[in-house]
Simulated assay, not measured.
Amino acid sequence: MNNYRTIYDAVGGFEGITRIVEAFYPRVQKHPLLAPLFPEDIFPVMEKQALFLSQFFGGPALYSDQYGHPMMRARHMPFPITPERAEAWLSCMRGALEENGLPAELQEIVLERLSGPAHHFVNTNETNEQET
């Protein structure tokens, strides 16, 4: 990443972010802990994620320009996010980064940057919400 000013630039700008998002969400949809949290029509979620990650990684403020302040913790509060789900989310992202052939050092930088927010969104330790 030494030759780039931002993670956004290092991953290939908006096109690179889009490729990561396109590799990420099929993994999420197949993951038993994550799939129940997402709508069947995943495309609006993917579009917002690409806008957000662009901004989050130092690119243009695409998300804020369209939707206002991200307020990501508040937006995630309606969903039961456990520590296990945070780790599953990061694992899906790791797979998406690998699939896109990002250098190992850049993958670790991206995952480190995402790890804080992923764990910040944890709002429950309940792992068996389905139990009766």
Rank of each mutant, 00 (worst) to 15 (best):
M1P: 11
N2R: 11
N2G: 14
R5A: 10
R5K: 13
I7C: 07
V11R: 04
G12E: 05
G13Y: 01
F14H: 14
G16D: 04
G16R: 05
I17V: 15
T18Y: 00
V21P: 10
V21I: 13
A23Q: 10
F24W: 05
P26R: 05
V28S: 11
Q29G: 13
P32S: 10
L34K: 12
A35Y: 02
A35S: 15
P36E: 11
L37P: 09
P39Y: 03
E40T: 13
D41T: 06
I42L: 12
M46Y: 00
E47L: 10
E47K: 14
E47A: 11
Q49C: 08
L51H: 13
L53R: 07
S54R: 01
Q55K: 03
Q55E: 15
F56P: 04
F57D: 06
G59V: 02
L62N: 10
L62W: 04
Y63G: 06
S64L: 02
Q66A: 15
Y67M: 07
G68A: 09
H69I: 02
M71A: 12
M71L: 11
R73N: 04
A74V: 07
M77A: 11
F79P: 10
F79Y: 15
I81D: 07
A88L: 06
A88M: 06
A88C: 08
W89I: 01
W89D: 04
L90W: 06
L90A: 10
L90V: 07
L90D: 10
M93D: 05
R94I: 00
A96W: 00
A96F: 02
A96H: 03
A96K: 03
E98H: 09
E98P: 00
E99L: 08
G101M: 00
G101D: 05
E105V: 07
E105G: 04
L106F: 02
L106Y: 02
E108K: 11
I109V: 14
I109D: 11
E112Y: 06
L114D: 09
L114K: 06
S115N: 13
G116C: 00
G116L: 08
P117Q: 12
F121W: 10
V122A: 12
N123T: 08
N125S: 13
T127L: 15
Q130N: 12
